[in-house]
């Protein structure tokens, strides 16, 4: 079976610093992968470069064996919550509807069918009653759920999520992970930038350790080992609650 995402020799710089250097990896279908690495390891840049939101210096990326531009509708991106202005005059349902804009097409408006789809996605995230709430009136966890609902409504085959669990409450974390598991069970592939090493083994079946380049990548049980994580993070890391280095 062909890979869902193939990245080869991908490099990118940010303000003249090379933050991503020769990253190469292949993501298999139906996997739930955590991208883990220290601050400044280039995790967000990796996602953005893969999606051509950030220019690459060299390297190539293919989705389902095709270039990104041909398969955009099969790839769903969930940016960091902090990347948008939550004071924007709009409500939760409207934000979810935006996930359908690509499919609705130019010069057309979202119809009743689209609104029902968006409502269904909000329902799946337990956010139905907040549909008409102005987005600045939502808590951080609720905002993240709205973003997840927007991803659901896209009905993509591959999802790339940038820190969806950052700064959310425990209930939201549970709801989001349940959703990602559900996507996986439907045969979707999910790639998540993740910051919490404590939960990697519980939540993800694959891990990609990143520090400017790919340190290790593979099934969690084999890849997420103390020695590999140390290679990614350097000596200052507390491994499973025990200080070392």
């Amino acid at each position: 079976m062909t890979s869902v995402l193939q990245v080869e020799g991908l490099s990118a710089s940010y303000r003249k610093n090379k933050v991503l250097d020769n990253a190469t990896f292949t993501v298999k279908p139906g996997t739930l992968t955590a991208i883990v690495g220290p601050n400044g390891a280039g995790k967000s840049t990796l996602l953005k470069t893969i999606l051509e939101l950030h220019p690459s210096l060299e390297g190539s990326v293919s989705f389902f064996g095709a270039p990104y531009v041909k398969v955009k509708s099969r790839v769903g991106y969930v940016p960091q919550r902090g990347s948008v202005d939550w004071d924007f005059p709009t409500d939760a349902l409207d934000v979810v509807l935006m996930g359908l804009y690509g499919r609705i097409g130019w010069l057309r408006r979202p119809g009743k069918k689209h609104r029902e789809q968006a409502m269904q996605a909000l329902r799946e995230m337990g956010m139905e009653e907040y549909a008409s709430r102005q987005i600045s009136q939502l808590s951080g966890g609720q905002q993240q759920r709205v973003f997840l609902a927007r991803a659901l409504v896209m009905d993509a085959d591959l999802y790339l999520l940038d820190e969806p669990l950052a700064g959310v409450d425990a209930a939201t974390e549970k709801a989001i992970m349940a959703t990602l598991d559900l996507l996986k069970s439907r045969g979707k592939t999910v790639l998540v930038v993740h910051h919490d090493l404590q939960t990697v083994e519980d939540y993800f079946d694959h891990v990609l350790l990143l520090n400017r380049t790919v340190i290790a990548h593979g099934p969690t049980a084999e890849t997420f080992t103390e020695s590999q994580v140390h290679r990614a993070y350097g000596g200052t890391l507390r491994w499973k609650g025990v200080a070392s280095g």
Partner: peptide, 22 residues
Amino acid sequence: IAFYKEWKITSFDPALALSLGI
């Protein structure tokens, strides 16, 4: 009026807009 939803999404979340092909 013609591009209302495109103005909205590119103002609110340009990264998402790009990833949707807008």
